[in-house]
Computed example of a mutant assay.
Amino acid sequence: MYHVVGGITSRAFRVIWMLEELGQDFTVDDVKPHSDPALAANTTGKIPALRVGDDYLTDSSAILSYLADKHQTLTHTPGTVERARQDALMHRILDELEALLWTAARHSFILPPEERVPDIKPSLKQEFLRNANRLADAIEGPFLQGAQMTIADILLTHCLNWAHVAGFPKPDARLTDYAKSMRQREAFKRALTH
Rank of each mutant, 00 (worst) to 15 (best):
T77K: 15
D95A: 11
P142F: 10
P78I: 07
E96Y: 06
A132M: 07
A99L: 06
Q148D: 11
E115W: 04
F128G: 05
A105H: 07
G141K: 13
D95Q: 09
R83N: 00
T150L: 07
I93D: 05
E127S: 13
K125S: 01
P112F: 13
P142A: 07
G146V: 02
R106K: 15
E114S: 09
H91F: 12
I120W: 12
A138Y: 04
G146S: 08
N131V: 10
P113Q: 13
Q145H: 14
L111Y: 11
S108R: 14
V117D: 12
Q86V: 05
G146A: 09
D137R: 12
T77M: 08
T80W: 04
R83M: 01
F109M: 09
G146I: 05
E114N: 10
L94R: 02
N133A: 07
L111F: 15
D87Y: 09
A105C: 10
I93R: 04
I151G: 01
G141E: 13
H107P: 00
I110E: 10
A136W: 04
Q148K: 14
R106A: 02
M149Y: 14
I139W: 11
L100E: 00
H91N: 11
E82I: 03
F143M: 10
P112S: 13
K121W: 00
A152K: 04
